[in-house]
Nucleic acid binder design. Structure first.
Length: 427
RNA sequence: GUGCCUGUAGCUCAAUGGCAGAGCGCCUCACUGUGGAUGAGGAGGUUGAGGGUUCGAAACCCUUCAGGCACCCCA
C-alpha cells in the first residue's frame, strides 16, 4: 500500500462491484431514454477551449476545466459538460437532421474542483436534450423523462422532487420591483443563496449588492409566493402538460430555483432530495440560442444533465440498488475429483447453452470451500456432478437460499434451475 | 482556488509523549460429498508519505498527499 502509485485526485476506481452498479444505473437511464424515443449519441471527450468560451458560464471554463496545450500549442479542454458539444454537432449538420430531435448520452466528464461528497473531478453524466421546439410541453417532457427515471429506480415522489421555475417569469417579477437588467446576474446569485444563508446574512448581502430596502421587500414577497407561477402563461401550460404526462406528483413550482448556467432562457428545473441532504441531483432548462453561439442558426431546445455521483449516494441511502446486480452468475458447477472434472465442464457448457450464467469451479477442492465461494459470490444455485450422480445420469442441484437439494436428470437440469431462480425472484 | 477538520490491520475504531490493540472480516482446522452457526488456532502494521523536536513520537512542529465540512461553483 505504501509504494503503490496513487490514483489522480478526485478520480474513482470502478472495481467489479462498483462497475455493476454503474451499469445498472446506465441501464435505467437508457431504458427511460428509449421509452421516450430518444436516440443515443456521443461526442469527443476533448474539445477546443473556444467551444466553451462561446458560452457555458465564465467560471466553468476558466476555473473549473482541465485545460492544456496540445503539442501544436492549441488549448484543449477535457469536456466539463456536453451541451456545447451537442450544439456544435447540431450546427455541423443543421440542415440534414430531423427535428424535433431527441438525443441522449452517458459518458465521462471532468471538472477541476475540490472533491467533496457528491462531487469528484471525474464523473459520469446522463444528458437528455429535445431540440427544435420551443413550446413548454417539450420542457414538461424533459422533466417527465427525469421523473420516469426516478420512478424506475425506485425513488418515489416522497423522496425526491423536481422543482421548477421560469427565468422569464423571474425577469418580469424583477422588472416589477424595479431591479434593472444590469443587476440581474447578481440578484439571481442572491436568489440562489437564500437557502444557504441565515435571513439576516442574506438580507445584508442583498443590500450589499445594491438592492434598496423596498426592492428587498419586493424580492422577499416574490420568493415566498408559491402561486407566482399562475402569473406565467408558460408555467400554467407547463404544469398542465406535466399532468398529462402523469408525473405531477414529482413536480412543483419553486420561485427560488434559478440555475447557474447562463444559457437557460425559459423554464429551469432541478432535482432535489426531499431531505435536502444532498446537492442538486440534476439540473436543466430551456434554451433559445445555444446553437447560434457556435455558429449555427438559432434553434430552441430543452435539456438536462444528471451526474452519477449524487444520484448514487441517494440511491444507496434509500436502499434502491438491488443486491443482486453485483452477482456475476446464477449457477456454480462444482468439481469433485480429477476423474469427473471433464463432466463438470460438460455440464457447465450444457447449462450455458440453455441460457444460464454458469461458473465452473476451476480446480479440485473440498466441496465446503466451493460452496463458500458460491455463497460469497452471491451465486444461489450449486450443481454437483459427482460419481454417484453421474452413474445414474443425474446431477445434484442445491438451492443455497432454501438449503434444499435434489437429484435431477442432466437433460432436465436447466429447466429445474430456471424454476428455482424464478422462485427467488418471486420471493 | 480559500478556510477548517481528519488520516492507525481489508473495514470500523482504541491507545490522552513510554511494549501498536480490539471488534468485524480473512486463512487453517474440528468437517475425506455440502455454504451462513459454534469452537480452537493463525496471518495481517514503515500508524498516508517525507522531514524535525525528544532519551523516547501514532500522538508535538513543518512540508506534502488524500479524504471530508463550509465557501466558490455545479452533476
Amino acid at each position: 500500500m505504501k509504494n503503490v502509485i496513487r490514483s489522480v485526485k478526485g478520480t474513482r476506481d470502478f472495481y467489479p462491484n462498483e462497475m455493476s452498479v454503474r451499469h445498472w444505473l446506465l441501464d435505467a437511464m437508457r431504458d427511460v431514454s428509449l421509452q421516450f424515443g430518444y436516440q443515443e449519441y456521443d461526442g469527443p471527450c476533448v474539445e477546443k477551449i473556444d467551444l466553451y468560451a462561446a458560452k457555458s458560464g465564465e467560471e466553468l471554463v476558466k476555473e473549473q476545466s482541465f485545460v492544456f496545450p496540445d503539442r501544436g500549442g492549441e488549448l484543449i479542454a477535457l469536456r466539463p459538460e456536453l451541451t456545447p458539444t451537442l450544439a456544435r454537432m447540431i450546427a455541423n449538420k443543421q440542415n440534414e437532421l430531423i427535428y424535433p430531435l431527441r438525443w441522449w448520452s452517458f459518458g465521462p466528464f471532468w471538472r477541476y474542483e475540490r472533491p467533496q461528497r457528491g462531487r469528484s473531478r471525474e464523473f459520469f453524466q446522463w444528458n437528455v436534450d429535445l431540440i427544435g421546439t420551443s413550446n413548454v410541453e417539450s420542457d414538461a417532457e424533459a422533466v417527465a423523462v427525469a421523473a420516469m427515471f426516478f420512478e424506475r429506480v425506485g425513488l418515489k415522489s416522497d423522496k425526491i422532487k423536481i422543482v421548477v421555475n421560469n427565468r422569464r417569469l423571474m425577469d418580469k417579477s424583477l422588472d416589477k420591483i424595479g431591479v434593472p437588467e444590469s443587476g440581474r446576474p447578481a440578484v439571481f446569485r442572491l436568489i440562489d443563496k437564500i437557502d444557504k444563508m441565515s435571513t439576516e446574512k442574506w438580507e445584508a448581502y442583498a443590500l450589499e449588492i445594491g438592492l434598496t430596502n423596498k426592492q428587498l421587500e419586493g424580492l422577499k414577497t416574490v420568493l415566498s409566493n408559491q402561486s407566482l407561477w399562475e402569473e406565467s402563461e408558460e408555467l400554467r401550460s407547463f404544469f398542465k402538460a406535466v399532468a398529462w404526462l402523469g408525473v405531477e406528483e414529482y413536480v412543483r413550482f419553486e420561485p427560488q430555483v434559478i440555475r447557474g448556467l447562463d444559457y437557460y432562457t425559459g423554464t429551469v428545473f432541478e432535482g432535489r432530495d426531499e431531505a435536502r441532504k444532498f446537492r442538486a441531483i440534476f439540473g436543466g432548462g430551456h434554451y433559445d440560442n445555444l446553437v447560434a453561439d457556435v455558429g449555427g442558426n438559432p434553434l430552441p431546445g430543452v435539456g438536462f444533465a444528471m451526474g452519477d455521483v449524487v444520484i448514487q449516494l441517494l440511491l444507496e441511502e434509500n436502499g434502491c440498488i438491488p443486491g443482486d446486480v453485483m452477482n456475476p452468475a446464477n449457477v456454480l458447477v462444482t468439481v469433485f475429483d480429477e476423474n469427473t472434472i471433464s463432466e463438470s465442464y460438460r455440464t457447465s457448457t450444457l447449462l450455458r447453452e440453455a441460457g444460464l450464467k454458469v461458473v465452473t469451479y476451476p480446480q479440485v477442492e473440498k466441496l465446503g470451500k466451493q460452496f463458500k465461494f458460491a455463497d460469497k459470490m452471491g451465486i444461489r444455485v450449486v450443481v454437483m456432478a459427482g460419481p454417484e450422480e453421474l452413474a445414474v445420469g443425474k446431477v445434484a442441484i442445491k438451492n443455497l437460499l432454501t438449503r434444499e437439494q435434489e437429484s435431477v436428470g442432466i437433460e432436465q437440469a436447466a429447466d429445474f434451475i430456471r424454476s428455482l431462480l424464478a422462485q427467488e425472484i418471486a420471493l
